[in-house]
Write a protein that binds this DNA or RNA. Structure first.
Lengths: 238, 238
DNA sequence: GGGACGGTTCGGCCGGCGCCGAAGGGCCGA
DNA sequence: TCGGCCCTTCGGCGCCGGCCGAACCGTCCC
């Protein structure tokens, strides 16, 4: 790759604008937003939003789908989402990688924060304390091994098969991947297995999405299922 | 805190300029560079480099140490280095972060970094693991003493005389000086003695310079010489 | 002390970028 | 067919940020 920083700078420039950064963070919920939704969310005129979205799509950070008169836009993929999340995590440390997180500025944000910290999606897999707890439980049960990088054990493979149909997936995506959690500062399960697990949890009603957020709420059924399948004891909803 | 993208944008802005990005990439070798070195490397005036370094240090991405009239600057830590590496890797994917994960192109960079960590020049004397190892060996042999600051013992003075002609040097430069190594985080030998030792090692063919880099390669002759003269056992080249 | 050197500060120039409003085009539903 | 909605294009404005050169300060070397 090139030794000059032009490419790096070009990529960073995409996120170096508050409006674009706000848009990308909003898209971290994994859904597709329309251009006007993003414009209102970021507090700019629609024409301005168009320009920003052109840049982000052109830069490969976002993918778009035109449907009728709507322009739907979403994060381009897991790497893009990882990038945004990682940068946001580093930026969240009061601008100091290594400092403690800033106190929530308001009650609503505190509530939001707590909900997000408890359980949320990280693009397409589980994150937050729940994501870490599930990952830990899977490790304790021998479904995951961290000996030489993160791998799914044979037992873990059987466990996934029993959990969800269509396992293993055909995609060339790595089965498992370690993803650093920005609230827990600990790794949780990403990759195809993480995505499949999350998808099943939502399909089966273990988790329900909280509107306009990437927070998740654990249902009673989910609590029971996780206890039965992983021996994971979770406190009732707070 | 994460709701608006201001923080994220602020962090990304640090890397959104080609000059700053080039500087950060240069610093990925793990070494500490001086301001002028970085200025020349990035192709800007010293005054411009100062401004960029102020931003990067202020943003927590870089750490600085003032030594004499020099301003040494290095990546602030592992998180910062990870951030730069990850962003650079994503930017290298043909500018498409959404594409599939890139092959470990960091292999070459890993090699580069290892080579630099192994042996390199710091100014005009030895640094890296080799520099630290030599310093340790000289201390163990009683050639150096750290009792009241770093001094060359009488025996060390004789050792230097036997090693190289023109010892002691006429310059009023301090004979020995402790210089903090940024990869080892331990002091190594600088000053006139360190310079003379390094010069002799290169002249005598113990070390050869690696082109377009500060890295050094230890020859077989050098390995033998260091074993004979310092009792220093070094592993063969990797 | 004198000279060289590394680094910093200050002022000023300039290009680029983000923003908007107005106008226009495509798609939809009545 | 017609009006309304979503989005885009275009022109223009204001500002921020990167760049330099000149002057200055502190350090090191002789």
């Amino acid at each position: 790759m090139e030794r000059d920083g032009a490419g790096l700078a070009a990529l960073a420039t995409l996120l170096a604008d508050p409006t674009r950064a706000t848009m990308c963070l909003a898209l971290m919920d994994g859904r597709a937003w329309t251009a006007t939704e993003l414009a209102r969310h970021a507090g700019v005129a629609p024409s301005t939003a168009t320009q920003h979205l052109n840049l982000l799509v052109g830069g490969g950070l976002l993918a778009e789908v035109r449907q009728g008169r709507h322009r739907y836009v979403r994060l381009a993929g897991t790497p893009a989402a990882d990038l945004v999340e990682r940068l946001a995590a580093a930026a969240g440390d009061a601008g100091r990688p290594g400092a403690e997180p800033a106190a929530p500025s308001s009650l609503t944000t505190a509530h939001r924060r707590r909900a997000l910290a408890a359980a949320r999606t990280c693009y397409d897999h589980l994150a937050g304390t729940l994501g870490v707890a599930v990952t830990d439980a899977m490790t304790a049960r021998g479904l995951l091994s961290w000996d030489r990088g993160l791998v799914l054990t044979d037992e873990g493979d059987r466990w996934m098969s029993a959990l969800a149909g269509g396992w293993p997936p055909e995609s060339r995506r790595p089965l498992v991947r370690s993803c650093l959690d920005w609230t827990e500062r600990r790794p949780h399960l990403g990759g195809a297995a993480g995505a499949a697990l999350c998808a099943h949890a939502v399909d089966a009603g273990w988790l329900v999405r909280v509107r306009r957020s990437r927070a998740l709420r654990l249902t009673d059924a989910g609590r029971t299922a996780l206890r039965e399948r992983l021996g994971l004891e979770l406190p009732p909803a707070g």
